[in-house]
């Protein structure tokens, strides 16, 4: 039983990261119906930028671990957000009126570009975050030691999900985003600047991915230029599992995917872990063709 709970927390920790990346994925998808395969690489860029800023500014030495990391996170979000806006302008905007899969290929091209750009700038070796940024001592929950960083990641993804949800549901811009997601043409007729909405979405989505990359760097220490592809794929899986385009769905899908992986590895087979996760995904989609929280609307292609 103790092992079960241990594995459950292992799964939640991994799932929290999937959820964090999936939030950005699903947000972009919700408005543009675009599977942004470059999202994983924006995540990698976040991890690298975070490390560069961390070592060059030495913020954490001056203002302490938590505040330093908080400020860094904002800087990384800003920078990756700008890259996201540029990406949309260059690679996706010209394809907005074309068949949906054309934009997917453009996204794949962007992914290859980013991955190799990181390799050329930083080199092919592994990079390592400093280990002593945050206190190492674990927090005890029900008598079980849980590393502090795990709790931070989970808290961060929940906080981001809730604020994103409130932002989309309660604010003026959020309303515009929802309107654009339903029908861009009609939104434009209602006086909504759809281009601006898309720009905002393409700032927030990548920013979330970027900060997730930085958190992975801090938590696991090791980063390299190919890591985004795998995480991107997992996040896409998580977003689909929860119902793509749906913000709480991304959260649920991410956590669930992490738990399925951990329990599948623990109780069925480690070597088949990813296959088990995909089998569960396929079974869920057979029963619920639009994911767990996805709306059951007939899609007209």
């Amino acid at each position: 039983m103790e092992q079960f709970f241990q594995q459950l927390t292992n799964g939640l920790a991994v799932g929290g990261i999937y959820a964090l990346i999936a939030l950005g994925y699903t947000m972009v998808y919700g408005v543009l119906k675009l599977i942004n395969f470059a999202h994983g690489d924006l995540f990698t860029i976040g991890a690298y930028l975070g490390l560069t800023l961390l070592t060059s500014l030495a913020l954490t030495d001056h203002v302490g671990g938590f505040l330093g990391i908080g400020v860094l996170a904002l800087m990384v979000m800003g920078l990756v957000g700008i890259i996201g806006i540029l990406l949309e302008r260059i690679a996706y905007r010209p394809l907005r009126e074309s068949p949906r899969l054309s934009a997917v290929v453009s996204a794949l091209g962007a992914s290859i570009f980013f991955q190799n750009a990181i390799m050329l700038v930083y080199g092919a070796k592994f990079y390592v975050y400093p280990q002593d940024l945050l206190p190492k001592s674990p927090v005890f929950i029900f008598g079980m030691p849980v590393p502090l960083m795990r709790i931070l990641i989970l808290v961060a993804s929940v906080v981001m999900m809730i604020s994103l949800y409130l932002f989309v549901q309660k604010t003026r811009i959020g309303t515009a985003i929802r309107a654009a997601a339903i029908d861009q043409g009609a939104a434009r007729l209602m006086g909504i600047d759809v281009n601006r909405v898309i720009m905002i979405v393409f700032c927030i989505g990548p920013a979330l991915g970027g900060v997730a990359g930085m958190m992975v760097g801090i938590y696991y220490g090791q980063i390299n230029f190919t890591m985004g592809w795998n995480y991107g794929l997992k996040a896409f899986t998580a977003a689909i599992l929860g119902g793509i385009g749906n913000i709480p769905g991304a959260m649920v899908g991410g956590l669930l995917l992490g738990v399925i992986e951990a329990l599948g590895a623990a109780y069925i087979s480690m070597a088949w872990k990813d296959a088990i996760a995909f089998v569960v995904l396929i079974l869920i989609l057979i029963v619920r063709p639009t994911g767990l929280l996805g709306e059951r609307v007939a899609e007209k292609i």
Binding site: Q7, N10, N230
Partner: peptide, 13 residues
Amino acid sequence: TPGERDYNTILTK
């Protein structure tokens, strides 16, 4: 599975 970041599941098992 090589290329991942989190091996806590394996270590626990």
